[in-house]
Amino acid sequence: MRRIFFYVGAIALLYACGQSPRQQDDSTSTTAEADRTVDGDLAGSYTYEKNGDTVALHLTIHDDKAMGHLTYALKEKDLNTGSFEGRVTDGILRADYTYLSEGQSSIRQVAFKVDGKTAVEGYADMEEKNGKFVFKDSTKLDFGEGLVLTKK
Rank of each mutant, 00 (worst) to 15 (best):
K140C: 03
Y123M: 12
D115K: 02
F135V: 09
T30R: 09
Q23F: 14
Q23K: 14
G122N: 10
T139Y: 05
N80V: 08
A124S: 09
G103T: 00
L42M: 14
V110G: 07
T37G: 01
V148Y: 06
T98I: 13
G116M: 03
K140G: 02
E128T: 01
K113P: 02
H69D: 13
A10H: 06
N51P: 00
L141W: 04
V134W: 04
S27W: 08
C17M: 09
A10L: 15
S27K: 10
F5E: 07
R2Y: 08
V110E: 06
F133L: 14
I4W: 04
M67W: 06
V134F: 04
L141F: 06
E85K: 10
T60H: 09
E76W: 08
I107W: 01
F6T: 11
V8A: 14
Y123A: 13
A119R: 05
L79N: 03
G40D: 12
A12E: 00
F143V: 09
L79A: 07
Y123P: 00
E145S: 15
E76C: 01
D142I: 07
S20M: 11
T28C: 11
G103Y: 00
R108L: 05
R36M: 14
Y97C: 09
L13E: 01
L42V: 10
D53L: 02
S29G: 09
D26I: 13
D137L: 02
K140A: 08
Y97H: 12
Q23S: 14
Q104E: 12
F6W: 10
K50F: 05
Y48E: 02
